[in-house]
Write a protein that binds this DNA or RNA. Structure first.
Length: 494
DNA sequence: TCTGGGGTCCTTAGCCCT
DNA sequence: TCTGAGGGCTAAGGACCC
């Protein structure tokens, strides 16, 4: 391990919730919960105000609402978070070319490689400056950890939260780690934590005392050796700037379990198409198709099939996913379906061409695909009629119209619904809107044909609330406004 | 009214080949 | 021809992370 604490770990504080508070001034200092709002939604991030009520990430949203009934529950706005993240990551890249993003709100930086800092003094100064720069550029706060390794830098930023900075001086690691819970170490989750607890190991110090052999015996070679080293404060993993994606997948959890086999097939086809869209978007093709099924009892199984060559052909992926589904028993119902592609290769025209030759892919097959599956698979469910069990309205909860359109619009606003009579517009809480007269605002809630909007924007004083009919022609969805800088002059916030 | 979505990595087991 | 070891690949599941 290096001598100087020049690995920096940045962790933005309650990122999604903080972005929401910054862009919605009336929520500053209030409990904000960001996550899925459906009956099976979970919390992605809670503001520190909400955490005081016991709300935390991965908690079912229903439970969060119970604990914190006055909290503002909002859907995530990933495009905005990505924009803010881009600003933060750009600031990190000014410090060093070696920046390793872990997610939208977290990254490692190798300060030494950037020539930014070679000792504790300089590292600390750099960290403080970074925090100030992030606040100036985004209005948000982040926590900084500095240490001689990635693992320790991450532990440090966790300890520094919220809005702090902690530097671990070389030589003090073991002493610092010893009393901490084993769960502090990366790679120790609920299962490993429980495994260790049963062996009487609850702290990092006890982990180190157990010895490498014992940990290997308990947890296997890779995990055992890795954990033992971490317990000693040893971690020589380098900061890696570019990481190639290894898989691409999409999955959907349904508000109500799906029973109807025809519907399930339709959903798998949809997911396959979405997956290929993402695959192509990332400039990849892939060789192994994976189907994921979570059943009514939460048991999860995967089935996979490896093709002769990589593909990004939707028809090929659809067919593979359909074949895999045929081998899965779905009686009892499914709550989640997913389609993924692994074994990624860089997309090239040659790949595509080779694949169509290898798999004998025909464009005609893509269109006539239903023929194969529908032919022998007509279990019950008459073609046009509503499938049984009320599974039909499962995904589009609040779309009482046209319950039986087979691959129904999914739970996203503005999903393509075909050329039906204008579907009722939906206004998810937290989403951005613009009113012809009142300017930019956000949806505070909607129901019984009404939508309530608060008219405010980043940097404005808390705004007023007004209620409209859901089909008010003056009201329309809009893009998020940047957190800092060009606020709109026309926003009436009085 | 339990438990999202998008990932990575590891382990185990079976099969095929040398 | 049989047997065993070991490597590579595939499939499935599990743990973990944010």
């Amino acid at each position: 391990m290096r001598a100087a604490p020049t690995i920096l770990h940045l962790d933005m504080d309650a990122f999604y919730a903080s972005v929401e508070q910054a862009s919605k001034p009336s929520l500053l200092g209030k409990a904000v919960i960001v996550g899925g709002l459906g009956p099976r939604g979970v919390v992605a991030t809670a503001s520190y105000e909400a955490r005081r009520f016991g709300v935390h990430s991965a908690m079912p949203m229903a439970q969060a609402r119970r604990l914190c009934p006055n909290g503002a529950c909002l859907i995530p706005r990933f495009s905005l978070y990505r924009d803010v993240s881009d600003i933060v990551m750009a600031l990190l890249r000014e410090l060093s070319p070696l920046v390793e993003p872990l997610s939208l709100d977290e990254a490692f930086v190798d300060l030494e490689a950037g020539g930014t800092a070679f000792d504790s003094e300089a590292a600390r100064a750099t960290g403080e400056r970074l925090r100030a720069d992030i606040r100036a550029a985004t209005g948000l706060s982040g926590s900084v950890g500095l240490a001689g390794s990635k693992m320790l830098a991450k532990v440090a930023s966790e300890e520094a939260k919220p809005a702090g900075l902690l530097l671990i001086e070389p030589g003090t690691e073991r002493e610092l780690l010893a009393p901490m819970s084993v769960r502090t170490l990366p790679g120790v989750g609920p299962a490993t934590g429980e495994h260790l607890r049963r062996a009487g190991i609850t702290t990092v110090g006890e982990l180190a005392e157990a010895g490498e052999d014992e940990l290997v015996r308990m947890l296997g070679r890779s995990h055992g050796v890795g954990l033992y080293r971490m317990a000693l404060g040893l971690d020589d993993r380098p900061v890696v700037a570019e990481r190639d994606a290894k898989s691409v997948s999409v999955e959907d959890t349904f508000d109500v379990d799906l029973h109807d086999r025809v519907r399930i097939r339709g959903e798998v086809q949809r997911l396959a198409d979405r997956c290929v869209q993402r695959l192509r978007g990332s400039g990849h093709s892939g060789r192994t198709i994976v189907l994921k099924v979570r059943r009514y009892d939460f048991s999860t199984l995967t089935r996979s099939e490896t093709l002769r060559g990589p593909t990004d052909d939707p028809a090929v992926v659809r067919e593979a996913a359909a074949r895999l589904l045929e081998g899965v028993d779905t009686t009892g119902g499914v709550r989640l379906l997913g389609v993924g592609v692994t074994g990624l290769a860089d997309y090239t025209q040659e790949d595509l061409f080779a694949q169509s030759l290898a798999a004998g892919t025909l464009a005609a097959e893509a269109d006539g695909e239903g023929g194969d599956g529908g032919g022998h698979g007509s279990e019950g469910a008459e073609p046009g009629g509503p499938p049984g069990e009320g599974g039909a309205a499962a995904v589009g909860v609040q779309a009482p119209t046209a319950p039986d359109q087979a691959p129904g619009p999914e739970g996203q606003p503005g999903a393509p619904g075909g050329a039906e009579p204008a579907p009722e517009r939906r206004w998810p809480p937290g989403s951005d809107v613009r009113h012809a007269l009142y300017g930019p605002g956000w949806v505070q809630g909607s129901g019984v044909g009404r939508v309530t909007v608060r008219f405010e924007q980043p940097g404005s004083p808390p705004g007023r609330v007004r209620t409209f009919r859901v089909d008010d022609p003056d009201l329309e969805p809009s893009d998020p406004l940047p957190l800092v800088g060009d606020a709109e002059p026309d926003g009436q916030t009085a």
